[in-house]
Computed example of a mutant assay.
Amino acid sequence: MKHHAAVTDIDLNAYLDCELDEARRAEIEALIESTPELAERVALYRADTARIARLHAPLQDLPIPPRLLEAVRRGTAPRPARRLAPVWAGLSAAAVLLLAVWIAPSLRTAPEPLVAEALAVRSGKTNPVREISAAQLASIDARDAVLQTALSLPVRVPDLERAGFELARMQLFDESTERKAVQLTYRDQKARSFTVYLRGPAGGDRFDLQQHANLQVCIWQNDSLGVVMLGGDMTAREMLRVATLTYGDLEF
């Protein structure tokens, strides 16, 4: 889908977050009303915002982690947001703090084992036993079949075209062991890379957001599968959107 030359994704996000001045807001509203393509993009963004709030709703029942409370007491908490954007509106203070820690530099000094595995795979330090280009997988069903066979789980390959990312390749690791693993690599038109590392079993239910060096990190985990999503050269908002789409499409 081609973007309207006068309106960027940044403009639309700012419009939806009510961060534009009145003149620019009126200009974009007029363009949306007269341009079906822009109206469609706005509808998709609003749907994504609702989806993010819905998927992260369980966080509202979590207690605020002691390390975050201590950081606030010390006055070293992540930089405060100017205000809560609509995407965070349905989340509790605990959820917002969890996400804020992700936006700021990570408090961790070294990656944990699951993240370390994903970083090693992304950097090429771990060699795959099999690599498949997206061109070799003619259909969505074929991609899903490869992933499901590799992991022995009913997961689906995420379709991230709505976020501007296309699948570039699938890499399979340790097929002969119980800890099977797969990396999905996506790229956008800016040549940015977004990787999804999947392996199981992983442990108890878990959701976490981190930052390591220049990479945004999102972890989803249950007792049958662990997923580490890594995105470079992204804002926290972009990463959250892509990670949420990924989680929704995996269907696990």
Rank of each mutant, 00 (worst) to 15 (best):
D21K: 08
T8K: 03
W102N: 14
G200K: 03
D233C: 13
A89N: 07
D21V: 09
T246S: 15
Q148D: 06
G226L: 04
S176H: 11
G90E: 14
L69F: 03
P58E: 04
E112G: 13
A43E: 12
P36H: 11
V146I: 11
A135M: 06
A168Q: 10
R74A: 14
W220F: 13
R169A: 15
L107K: 06
D11F: 03
D21N: 12
Q60M: 07
D233H: 13
A89G: 12
E238Y: 07
R122Q: 12
I140R: 13
A47I: 01
F194S: 01
A39F: 07
A213L: 14
I52Y: 00
L31S: 03
R143Y: 03
Q189M: 05
A138H: 09
L167V: 04
T76W: 05
A43Q: 08
R156E: 08
P158Y: 02
L38S: 02
L31D: 02
R46G: 02
N127D: 06
G124K: 05
D174E: 11
G248V: 08
E40D: 10
A213V: 12
A142D: 15
D188R: 00
A168E: 13
R237V: 12
I28V: 08
P65C: 04
S92C: 05
T109K: 10
Q211G: 12
D17V: 01
D249T: 03
A243S: 15
E178M: 10
R192S: 08
V7E: 05
V242Q: 02
E33V: 08
E27Y: 13
A236E: 04
L147R: 00
T126L: 15
E33H: 11
K2C: 04
M239T: 06
Y247E: 14
P154M: 10
G231C: 07
Q211D: 07
L44M: 13
G75A: 10
P63L: 03
L20V: 06
D188H: 01
L198T: 04
R25P: 00
G232R: 08
Q210C: 08
S176I: 06
C218K: 00
L31T: 06
L215I: 09
G232T: 08
Y197C: 12
A5T: 09
G203P: 03
V196C: 14
L107S: 13
G200F: 05
L99Q: 04
A77F: 11
W102K: 11
P111H: 05
G226K: 00
T244R: 00
G203T: 04
L119F: 10
D188E: 07
A57F: 03
E33Y: 06
R122D: 12
K2L: 12
A57S: 05
L184G: 00
F165G: 00
Y197Q: 05
G75P: 06
A191T: 09
Q60F: 02
R25N: 09
D48R: 15
F252Q: 11
